[in-house]
Write a protein that binds this DNA or RNA. Structure first.
Lengths: 330, 330
DNA sequence: TTGTATGCGTTATCAG
DNA sequence: CTGATAACGCATACAA
C-alpha cells in the first residue's frame, strides 16, 4: 500500500514539470500531443489520480451538494433521493446526505455544509421554522434551495408542486364522482405545505357550496399517526354524520387511515369511505391500497433545482403542475 | 456577501499569529486562556469558521464516507440510510450518497470516492460482480465495506445478517405451522445473498425429508417482478401441485406476490397460500400485508460497520442474528 | 506558550 | 507550449 502518486511524482519520472502533468489532465489545456502521451504513460504506470480535494481548495468548488432529509418514514423520499442523486451525478456533482433530527438540526447542518465548502444545500422536504434559518449568519456560504415544500425565507428559492391546481384537480375529480362530505387529514400544522394544501382544499369546497369539512390531525407523518387520527374520528362521529371521502396530506397518512378503516371497522374503501392523497409511492399503486393520488413531478422538480444550482436557470421560486392519478380508492 | 474570513484575518485583527488562531480552535491545544478569549472574540466578530477542506488536505482525513446504493425501489433501504447517517453523524462523519446505476457503476464510484479522498466506502446492499472490483488498482485508497450482503472480495469485510440461522428460524416456524410444500422466490441469481439464502432454504427442507421445492425467479427486486413470477407460476402449475407456502427473498418481491395472489386469483393469503420474507419494512407490518418476516438487525449492523471504519473494531467479516417476526401471513 | 518554516496537491497567472 | 511563482487555508514540527 504505497503512498499515492502526485503530479510531482509523475513529472519527475516523465521529465517534465508538474504543471505539464496538470495540463495533461485538464481538458482543453494547451499542450502538445507528445507531452500529453508521455505524461499519460507515466501516470498510468504510477497509477496517478488527481486529488480533487486539493483542486477544490484551489478552485473553491467541491462539486458536492448537501441534501437535508428529516423524514425517513416516507418511501416517497426514496424517489426524490434517487432522482436527485441521478441528476447530480450526471452533472459531476454528488449528494452529501444529512439526516436532520433532534441531535442534528438545520443550523447544525448548515454550519457543517458551510465549513465543508459544499456548493449548495438542498432542503428536501424538511420541516423547519423560518425564523430559525433567517438569522444564521452565513456570509459567502453555499446557496440554499427548498425542494418539495414552500419557503418564506427571503433569497431562498422553493421548487415545488403547484398546490392550488393539485388540490383543484383532486377535488374536482372527487366532486364529479359525487362525494359531498369531504374530510381533510393533515400532518403537523407547523409545516407550511400543510397550510397551503388545507387552504386550497377549503376554498374549493366552499366555492361549491359546502362549508362543513372535518379535519383530522395527525401528529406525525407516519402510518401510525394517520391510523390513530382516523380511529379517533370514527369512534367519535356517528355513522350518519361522517365524511364520505377523506383527502390525506400524503401517502403514509393514507396508508394508516386505510388500514384502520378496513381492518378495524371492516369497511371497503371507495364504497363506505374513500381516500385520496398527495404523493404517489409504489405502494399507492399496489392493489392492496390502490389510492387515487396526485403525483408530484419529481423529475422536473429535481431538474429545475439542479439547473439553478449550476446557474443555468435563475434562482427563483418555481411551482410546477403534477399529475392526477385516478385509482380505485376514490 | 463579503469574502469569508480566514485564520489570517482573525490573527491580524487579534494581534497574534495565525497559528495561535488555529490553536484556539483546536481542542486540547496549548494556549493561554487570554489568547483564546482574544481570538474567539475577533473570530466571532468576523464570523470566522475554520475551513474543513483545507484541514482535510493537510490531515488526509475528510470525515466523509461514500455510501453506495443501487436499489431505490426497496423502502428497506431507507431504514439503512437513516441509521447509517445517524450513526455516522454522531461520530462527526457524513455520508456521501452515490447512486449506482447503468451510467455510474461501482468502478466509477470507487474512483470518484478515491479522488475525493473519502475516508471509507460502504456498499450498502449493492449488486456487484466480484471480479469487477477485484482488479481495481486503488493503492492508498479508502477501505471498503460491504453492508447487508455477502462479499468474497479479499480484504473487504462484509457486515451481514446471519443467513443460515435466519432461514432456519423462518423455516422451522413454517414447518411447525404445518407447511409441507415450500416454494422459494429469489431475485437475480447473480447476487450472492440470493445464493446463500436459497442454499440454506434447500438444506433445511431436505433435512426434513422434503425434496421438491419449486423456485420462482424474479428478474429484479421489484414488486412488479415478484408479481410476474407468481403469476407465471400459478398459471403453469395445477392447483393440486402448487406450493402451500412461499418464502420470498425480500419484502418487495412479497408485496408483488401477495397482490397477485389476492387480487388476480382471489385467494386469501395464509389460507390458500402463505408468504414469508426477509427484511421488515413498515409495510410488511401493515394490516394490508401483515407479513411474517425475518428482520435484519439494522442498527447493530450499522454500528459494527462504523466501528470498523473508526478503527475501534478490527476490520473483518461479521455476521449477526436478526429477529423472527411472526404475523398473519404465515 | 508562542512564533516560524514547511508541507498538503492542486489551480491561476505570468514570463519565457 | 512550457516552466516558474504565488496562492488556497490549515497542520505539523521545531525553535524561541
Amino acid at each position: 500500500m504505497a503512498k499515492r502518486a502526485t503530479a510531482r511524482d509523475v513529472a519527475e519520472q516523465a521529465g517534465v514539470s508538474k504543471w505539464t502533468v496538470i495540463r495533461a489532465f485538464t481538458p482543453g489545456a494547451s499542450i502538445t500531443e507528445g507531452s500529453r502521451a508521455k505524461v499519460m504513460a507515466v501516470a498510468e504506470k504510477l497509477n496517478y489520480r488527481p486529488n480533487l480535494l486539493a483542486r477544490s481548495l484551489a478552485t473553491n468548488l467541491t462539486h458536492q451538494v448537501a441534501v437535508l432529509v428529516d423524514d425517513f418514514e416516507n418511501p416517497y423520499k426514496l424517489s426524490f433521493l434517487e432522482r436527485l442523486t441521478l441528476e447530480l451525478q450526471s452533472e459531476g456533482l454528488v449528494a452529501v446526505l444529512i439526516n436532520i433530527n433532534e441531535h442534528f438540526d438545520h443550523v447544525h447542518a448548515l454550519l457543517n455544509a458551510d465549513q465543508r465548502q459544499l456548493d449548495a444545500v438542498i432542503m428536501c422536504g424538511t420541516a423547519f421554522r423560518t425564523e430559525m434559518l433567517q438569522d444564521v449568519r452565513l456570509d459567502g456560504a453555499a446557496p440554499m434551495f427548498v425542494l418539495a415544500r414552500d419557503s418564506q425565507i427571503s433569497g431562498v428559492p422553493a421548487i415545488n408542486c403547484d398546490t392550488t391546481s393539485a388540490i383543484k384537480d383532486l377535488c374536482r375529480h372527487l366532486h364529479e364522482k359525487g362525494y359531498r362530505r369531504p374530510g381533510f387529514m393533515a400532518g403537523p400544522k407547523t409545516l407550511s405545505t400543510a397550510l397551503g394544501r388545507r387552504r386550497a382544499f377549503k376554498a374549493f369546497w366552499k366555492a361549491h357550496g359546502i362549508t362543513e369539512m372535518p379535519e383530522l390531525a395527525a401528529h406525525h407523518y407516519s402510518a401510525a399517526s394517520g391510523a390513530e387520527a382516523v380511529r379517533r374520528y370514527l369512534n367519535e362521529v356517528s355513522p350518519a354524520g361522517r365524511v364520505d371521502v377523506l383527502l390525506c396530506e400524503n401517502d403514509v397518512l393514507a396508508f394508516g387511515a386505510m388500514d384502520v378503516i378496513r381492518s378495524e371497522f371492516g369497511w371497503r374503501v371507495a364504497a363506505d369511505i374513500a381516500a385520496a392523497v398527495f404523493d404517489n409511492t409504489l405502494f399507492a399503486a399496489a392493489p392492496a391500497y390502490d389510492l387515487t393520488t396526485y403525483e408530484q413531478p419529481v423529475e422536473a422538480m429535481v431538474k429545475a433545482t439542479v439547473a439553478m444550482i449550476l446557474g443555468r436557470e435563475p434562482k427563483k421560486t418555481v411551482t410546477m403542475p403534477g399529475r392526477l392519478v385516478v385509482r380505485g380508492s376514490a
